[in-house]
């Protein structure tokens, strides 16, 4: 086949792919638009007072009016979330590697990882605030704790998801432990690791906001608490919308990194 024909086919494939992926968003966007429209109509028609449920238009106006300082608070919250995410995920990853290589560590530590998971974070957040004050630290710790478990469980599963036959191949080649880890266990675990990271990304935002509720002088959680004292429903809704948007963006950033890292076909665990 001639070169330009190939180029044409590739261009065509690319275009088709782009259309299908952007098409994927359309139903969800339409649904959101519909919901917002109904909300707006109901609020206006029933004349609901803004301090109970503001209309989407009012929320939007609030967002735009307060955007400069809301952005600063959002940035602060995201800093806490991302730091917690990085610390929690890295710790979980290293723990999983230990679990897989030293069985006794898993037997000793895994039950306690479950215990940690069952402690409600809203219960430990005030304690951490007593210890560390109105600083970044309690929020990062909470976000890290909340990220830890999903990454731990997924990574452990991924590192074990190695077929017996692949292990036999490595054994025939007399591969050393390090070699087995880097060339077999790690790459085959990556799809699982990323599945865990995507969950952790959204949880980390929730974690840092919850931690802010119990003691903070800035951040989206702080904004929500302050607005609730003043029954500033519009601001509360605006903050909620922003934090959920931030969670979605974080989720997709991890998704993009995953896509760029896992290049082989059928690598992503939940690809449709």
């Amino acid at each position: 086949m001639k070169r330009n024909e190939w180029t044409a086919i590739r261009a065509n494939l690319f275009k088709r792919r782009w259309i299908t992926t952007s098409k994927g968003f359309i139903p969800a966007a339409l649904l959101a638009l519909l919901a917002v429209a109904i909300w707006q109509i109901v609020v206006v028609a029933a004349d609901v007072p803004a301090y109970i449920v503001p209309s989407p238009a009012e929320i939007m106006a609030e967002l735009l009016a307060e955007s400069s300082w809301l952005a600063a608070d959002l940035g602060w919250t995201m800093l806490e979330a991302v730091l917690g995410f990085l610390i929690g995920s890295c710790t979980a990853f290293i723990t999983a590697v230990l679990f897989v290589h030293v069985r006794v560590v898993e037997r000793a530590a895994f039950p306690w990882a479950i215990v940690l998971q069952t402690i409600p974070i809203v219960a430990i957040a005030p304690l951490l605030t007593i210890w560390f004050g109105y600083t970044l630290v309690p929020k990062v710790i909470i976000a890290a704790i909340i990220c830890f478990f999903p990454v731990l469980v997924n990574t452990t599963r991924g590192l074990r998801a190695v077929s017996n036959q692949a292990m036999e191949l490595m054994n025939v080649l007399s591969a050393r432990k390090a070699s087995i880890f880097w060339r077999l266990r790690l790459p085959s675990s990556l799809p699982y690791v990323f599945a865990g990271l995507r969950v952790a990304a959204t949880l980390s935002v929730i974690g840092s906001i919850v931690a802010e509720f119990t003691g903070a002088d800035r951040g989206i959680g702080y904004v929500i608490v302050q607005a609730s004292y003043r029954i500033d429903t519009r601001l509360m809704f605006a903050a909620i919308a922003l934090s959920s948007l931030a969670g979605i963006v974080f989720f997709h950033v991890i998704g993009w990194i995953e896509k760029a890292t896992l290049r082989w076909p059928e690598a992503r665990l939940d690809e449709d």
Partner: peptide, 25 residues
Amino acid sequence: FVFQDPVLFPWLRALGNVLLPDKIL
């Protein structure tokens, strides 16, 4: 050893799979 199933690593391209023993050894 040529196993009954090919046992290729899905994250490596064909050439990478052929070179795998060299990388390990």
